[in-house]
Every structure is written in structure tokens, then in C-alpha cells.
């Protein structure tokens, strides 16, 4: 793989996501707004909130990341850029990897950085906040990676944004289970190995997804 083309695609995607109208600010706002709505719904019992915090924040992070996923390839497909990118020296697998990395850097990472603040507001003790942050840091790449498969598959579907969550959410169940489970383990004073499982899951997903996503994009370009 050549580095200059890979980095240029990555840099362009980050630039597009961070410019006005980009997805970073939107994802962060969505994440915070969802996390705010939950205590309004379930009441302000801090004990209850602390128990629910990891699950709520993990689900909110997954949904916030999904928001921008359906545009991952579609934006480039609609204006013809994807053809130009496909004809570049990069293989479609590398293109998918660059897009996944770019998506994670502009959603998963900022969400992770915001999560300690929200964890604090949910009454999580410091050590649980630390584990929550670590779990999001190692788990959210899997969200971008598996989401990229869904984005590739729904590339040519006009209402693809509606189908994508249905395709991707069941696949992400292990990330939510292990991510939130790690934090609950801290609250219960158990060491349950969740972070290791989460890391293994995220690693496998990140390594394998570019191939599936590239296959999906290739097939849709031929349409």
C-alpha cells in the first residue's frame, strides 16, 4: 500500500468532516443530547443512573456514529468522486480502510473524549469512568468498521440511511455487551475480562471489515 494516496484520502475525509456542515459537531451534539434525555426519562436517582450509565452511553455512542455512516461512501458515489478514487493507485480495500480510520477519528475518538464528562454526570466513580473511556476507545473502531460494510452494501439505495442501522446494529451487539459489561464489572468489583473480549472483537472487525466493505463497494460501482 502506498502511503501518500492513503494519507491524502484520510486527510481529505477528516477535512470534510470537520468543516462547517461536517459530521463531527453533529455526532458530538447528538451523543450529548441523547445522554441528557435519559436522566430526564428515567429520573435523577444517581444510583440507578450509574448502573445504567455504561449501557446508555455505549448505545448513544453507537447511534451517534451510525448517523454519519451512511454517507461514508455515498457522498463520494453521488458526485462521481468514488469512480475517481476507485481508479487511483489505492486498492478498494485500502480505500475502505482509510475511510474507516477517517470515520473513527472524526466520530469514535471525539465521542470517547467527551465520554468522561458524561460519565461524571451519570454519577460514575472515577475508576468506572476510566474503564468506560478505555472501552469506547478500543470498541468504537469496530463500530466504524462494521458500519463501513453496511455503508458499502447500502451505497446505491436511496433510503439507505434507514436500512443501514438494521443491518449493522445486530452485528454490534458484542461491542455493546462487552463495552458496557466492562464498566459494570468495575461497579460490581469483579474482573470479568470484558475489555479483552472487546479488544479481540474490535481487532477482528477492523481487520476483516475493509475486505467486506470493498467487495460491497466494488459490486455497487458496477451497477
Amino acid at each position: 500500500m502506498r502511503m501518500t494516496p492513503f494519507l491524502s484520502l484520510l486527510a481529505r475525509d477528516i477535512r470534510l468532516a470537520t468543516r462547517a456542515g461536517g459530521s463531527v459537531a453533529l455526532a458530538l451534539a447528538f451523543f450529548a443530547a441523547m445522554a441528557t434525555l435519559v436522566p430526564l426519562g428515567v429520573g435523577n436517582d444517581l444510583k440507578l443512573l450509574a448502573r445504567a450509565a455504561a449501557g446508555v452511553l455505549w448505545v448513544a455512542a453507537v447511534l451517534a456514529a451510525l448517523l454519519s455512516l451512511n454517507r461514508l461512501f455515498q457522498a463520494d458515489f453521488e458526485d462521481g468522486s468514488l469512480d475517481l478514487i476507485a481508479l487511483s493507485p489505492l486498492s478498494l480495500e485500502s480505500v475502505a480502510a482509510a475511510k474507516i480510520l477517517g470515520h473513527w477519528l472524526t466520530t469514535g475518538l471525539p465521542l470517547t473524549l467527551l465520554s468522561p464528562l458524561l460519565g461524571l454526570m451519570f454519577g460514575l466513580p472515577p475508576e468506572a469512568i476510566a474503564v468506560l473511556t478505555v472501552s469506547l476507545l478500543i470498541g468504537t473502531p469496530a463500530v466504524s468498521a462494521l458500519g463501513a460494510i453496511g455503508a458499502g452494501l447500502t451505497l446505491t439505495i436511496r433510503r439507505g440511511g434507514l436500512i443501514l442501522p438494521l443491518l449493522v446494529l445486530p452485528l454490534l451487539a458484542p461491542a455493546v455487551i462487552f463495552g458496557a459489561g466492562a464498566v459494570r464489572g468495575v461497579l460490581d468489583g469483579l474482573s470479568n475480562g470484558a475489555l479483552l473480549f472487546l479488544a479481540a472483537f474490535a481487532l477482528a472487525a477492523t481487520v476483516l471489515s475493509p475486505f467486506a466493505a470493498a467487495a460491497a463497494v466494488r459490486l455497487n460501482l458496477a451497477g
Partner: peptide, 23 residues
């Protein structure tokens, strides 16, 4: 037949991107 222009990027940025992408 599609122009491939990103509304947020300037022509100079767009060309610089493609020059690097195509190495």
C-alpha cells in the same frame, strides 16, 4: 458525467488532493 466537486473544498484543495491521491 458527474463533476466530482466537493462543495466544501476549493479548486486548489481538490486538485492538491487528487495529485496526492494519484501520486
Amino acid at each position: 458525467h458527474l463533476d466530482g466537486a466537493k462543495s466544501q473544498l476549493t479548486p486548489r484543495e481538490a486538485l492538491a488532493f487528487y495529485a496526492r491521491l494519484y501520486d
